[in-house]
Amino acid sequence: MDSLVVLVLCLSCLLLLSLWRQSSGRGKLPPGPTPLPVIGNILQIGIKDISKSLTNLSKVYGPVFTLYFGLKPIVVLHGYEAVKEALIDLGEEFSGRGIFPLAERANRGFGIVFSNGKKWKEIRRFSLMTLRNFGMGKRSIEDRVQEEARCLVEELRKTKASPCDPTFILGCAPCNVICSIIFHKRFDYKDQQFLNLMEKLNENIKILSSPWIQICNNFSPIIDYFPGTHNKLLKNVAFMKSYILEKVKEHQESMDMNNPQDFIDCFLMKMEKEKHNQPSEFTIESLENTAVDLFGAGTETTSTTLRYALLLLLKHPEVTAKVQEEIERVIGRNRSPCMQDRSHMPYTDAVVHEVQRYIDLLPTSLPHAVTCDIKFRNYLIPKGTTILISLTSVLHDNKEFPNPEMFDPHHFLDEGGNFKKSKYFMPFSAGKRICVGEALAGMELFLFLTSILQNFNLKSLVDPKNLDTTPVVNGFASVPPFYQLCFIPV
């Protein structure tokens, strides 16, 4: 009986604490739906499609509103004006990374994606500088992407125009580009180590996009005490870190300090320079996690976009025909596509942009946080508050993009057929937390897609009208449904 009384008292205290925290903070924060004790607004949000729920709530509470995930307040920004004001106009104040408990377990605050403060700034600055020195957006990395595009075309030829699921092959190409940047090595598509790495990356994007992960991140005790797919994700990350550590040891034994070959060499050189400046942010643990982040951000996002792009091109054969006509006119058949071609191919450029806009790969991006107490639109948001960005509300804005739910390359073309930029184009987020590999991803999408369409016609196994382009999961990332196609050599 005594234990029951204690339990009831504990629960009562928890409920009172929950109510007090919510009521004391709500006077400062933007308005929002009334949260339930302990669980907050979790029942009012469709976990399978958070973005749709945010759109519905914005119609009631406006472009800036507050939700509670458990006891934790989260300020939501919906629509271009609110997102721009926060991420661009007040970029420094909104540059923090929001709480992501599962990532905390995986990387302990290291790396480039989930770190904060001085650690994040130094690692991000170093990573950007190193990638630029190796030619991100310049010639040397373009050579690597072109080489991988040629290998991709050869792998597709091996399908002999038979029906195939493109998931694996389209994942190999961007993964190999990242391998060449980090390890100075590309792998054969049949290499077992490479296959294991690909498998872990593919599993992780599916797990991260599941409703279960949303629950884990908002009720963090689940991570330590409950079984579930989150444990598989943590094991996959541990596998990748151990693999990278092996490569780091190989580099330490063979590195030429006067001739760095890749990202690992550059990081080890930085560690050597910083060894007298303790404590340094440049450690082996930081290198492991930064490399894992580059793999995660640079492989599955690009391969998922490529997979979605081919599905949309199957669905819209008239678009595919126009792209192939432009390829034939500008590039021809006797040389590989290059980035200089893009400025002469406005329709193809528009298609690449429209694919990214339409699929809305990361509907709410990753959570941000404010780095200080900030007054925002007459609300006071306390330091450390998590900020949720609705990228969907920007990419699918119906004023900027008429009929935003329709796939239409003319969203990025003017009346004369010239490519038209849009400030609403934010597939990689915006501001200080914009994806480090934005330029690389854009290069890969253009070169891989043009190389495929230069060499193959795409054949659907069903009537294009019957192809479903609805994402199968739409949590962290929008993942396309399973499909097969035939690559018919031109």
Rank of each mutant, 00 (worst) to 15 (best):
I434A: 15
L306Y: 00
M255C: 13
L440K: 01
F226W: 07
L395C: 06
S58V: 04
N56V: 13
Q484M: 05
L43K: 06
F448T: 02
N455V: 07
N277P: 08
L43I: 12
S343D: 14
L54N: 00
S336Q: 10
F134K: 15
K270E: 13
M269F: 09
T304R: 13
I207M: 11
P30T: 01
H276A: 11
G296P: 03
L461M: 09
E92Y: 08
F376M: 11
T167S: 15
D191T: 03
I141P: 02
G62P: 01
N196S: 13
K52A: 11
Q214I: 09
P279W: 15
V6A: 15
K423I: 13
I74Q: 03
T385A: 04
D89R: 02
Q356C: 12
T305A: 14
P404E: 08
M339I: 08
M271D: 04
L314I: 10
L395M: 08
V60G: 07
P489L: 00
L311K: 01
E400A: 10
L14C: 09
M136R: 15
V145M: 03
F487S: 00
H230T: 09
I88V: 12
T450M: 02
I213S: 12
Q356S: 08
V370T: 14
G298C: 11
Y424N: 11
H410R: 10
F69L: 12
V355P: 01
E281L: 12
Y243L: 15
M426W: 08
I181Y: 10
V352R: 02
W20A: 04
Q22G: 14
A441G: 08
N378M: 03
R125Q: 10
A173Q: 00
M257S: 12
K383S: 09
P404H: 06
H316C: 04
K421N: 14
T469F: 04
L268W: 05
A106V: 13
M339S: 10
I488Y: 13
V64F: 03
D188R: 05
V370R: 03
D341C: 03
V177R: 01
G298F: 04
N204S: 11
L234P: 04
D2E: 12
R186G: 02
E274M: 09
Q340D: 08
A321T: 12
S460P: 10
E326K: 00
C13N: 03
K138Q: 13
L197R: 01
R125M: 09
Q22Y: 09
A106Q: 15
Q252M: 08
G96L: 14
K119Y: 15
H316S: 06
N204R: 04
E415T: 15
P211R: 10
E142R: 02
N176G: 02
I205S: 14
K315V: 03
Y68A: 02
K121H: 14
K423V: 12
Y189K: 02
K138E: 09
R186S: 02
I327Q: 01
T386D: 05
N202G: 09
Y424E: 07
A350E: 00
K241L: 01
N196R: 13
F428H: 05
S58G: 07
Y61W: 08
S478N: 12
C179G: 05
L9E: 00
I205D: 13
L156T: 01
L131Q: 02
C338F: 07
L170T: 05
V6T: 13
E246L: 07
F194K: 01
G98K: 15
N259F: 08
G137V: 08
S162V: 13
Q22R: 15
E274R: 08
M271E: 05
H251G: 05
M136N: 13
F187M: 07
N176D: 02
N231T: 13
C172K: 06
K206T: 13
G384P: 01
S280K: 08
V352G: 02
A321S: 14
P317Y: 06
K185W: 06
S23G: 13
F487K: 01
Q22T: 14
S140N: 14
Q356V: 11
F407M: 01
F100C: 11
P337R: 00
D463T: 10
N231G: 08
V490R: 13
I45V: 11
I327F: 00
L388S: 04
L366F: 09
T130E: 08
F376A: 03
V64M: 09
E288H: 06
F226R: 02
F282R: 03
N466A: 13
R186E: 02
L380S: 14
V64L: 05
G70C: 05
H410E: 15
S53W: 06
L14R: 02
I387D: 00
L234S: 13
P402V: 11
M345V: 02
E155P: 02
D256S: 11
W20T: 03
P337V: 10
P35I: 01
F69M: 14
P337H: 00
G96E: 15
L440A: 02
E328R: 13
T385D: 00
N56M: 10
E285G: 12
H78Q: 08
P211F: 08
F295H: 00
F407L: 01
F412H: 03
H78D: 06
R139L: 13
Y68E: 03
G135C: 11
E104S: 13
S390R: 11
L170M: 11
M426D: 15
F110L: 12
F376G: 02
